[in-house]
C-alpha cells in the first residue's frame, strides 16, 4: 500500500470538514482546526487499477486566502480538493484565488473542484472554464445527504496514482 498526502481547502463554512466526516476511517477531534489550524484524517481506497492507497487528508481551516502557516501545511501534497459552496457565490471567488496560491506554493498537482451543498439552491455561477480545465474533475456534492462525496475522494485518488 502506498500513502499519499492530500489537502482539502476552501472558504469558511463551505462544508470541508463535513465532507471528510462523511467519508473517513479515522479522525481527530475538530478542536484541532481552531487550535493548530489543521485536522488530520485517513482513508484507505483501491483504485480502478487495483492499487491500494491510503489518503492522509489534511483538513485545513477555512479561509479565503492562504496564510504562511497554512501554506506550510500544503507542502508535500500530492493533490487537493478545492471546495466552494454553491449557495454562496463569494466562496467560488475564494476557491479560484486559493487555487492560484496553491500553485504558487507547490506547483501544479491534481485537484478536484467540488461545489458542495448541492441540496441547497444554487446561487453561485458555474466556475470559469479556465479553473475547470485545470482541475482533474469537477463534481457537485452534498455532505448532508452524502451525495457524490465518495466520488470526490475516489477521483482524486485515481488522479494522484496516475501521477
Amino acid at each position: 500500500m502506498i500513502t499519499k498526502k492530500i489537502c482539502i481547502i476552501g472558504d469558511f463554512a463551505v462544508g470541508k470538514t463535513s465532507l471528510i466526516n462523511r467519508f473517513v476511517d479515522n479522525h481527530f477531534s475538530e478542536e484541532y482546526l481552531t487550535t493548530v489550524g489543521v485536522k488530520l484524517d485517513t482513508k484507505e481506497l483501491v483504485t480502478s487499477t487495483g492499487t491500494d492507497i491510503k489518503l492522509v487528508i489534511w483538513d485545513i481551516a477555512g479561509a479565503d486566502e492562504l496564510t504562511t502557516a497554512k501554506r506550510s501545511y500544503i507542502d508535500g501534497a500530492s493533490g487537493y480538493i478545492l471546495v466552494y459552496d454553491i449557495s454562496r457565490p463569494k466562496t467560488l471567488v475564494s476557491a479560484t484565488n486559493l487555487q492560484g496560491s496553491v500553485v504558487e506554493e507547490i506547483g501544479s498537482v491534481p485537484f478536484v473542484l467540488v461545489g458542495n451543498k448541492n441540496d441547497l439552491e444554487a446561487k453561485a455561477p458555474e466556475p470559469d472554464a479556465d479553473l475547470i480545465d485545470k482541475s482533474c474533475h469537477q463534481l457537485k456534492t452534498s455532505a448532508l445527504t452524502g451525495d457524490g462525496v465518495a466520488d470526490v475522494f475516489q477521483a482524486l485518488a485515481e488522479a494522484v496514482v496516475a501521477g
Binding site: T42, K54, A69, Y73
Partner: peptide, 21 residues
C-alpha cells in the same frame, strides 16, 4: 492504537505550527 499515519502527520503539523508561531 491511534492511526499512525494520522499521528505522524499531526506531529509535523504541530512542529510547523509551533515554528510558525
Amino acid at each position: 492504537q491511534k492511526d499512525e499515519d494520522a499521528v505522524s502527520a499531526m506531529f509535523l503539523a504541530i512542529e510547523r505550527f509551533v515554528k510558525d508561531s
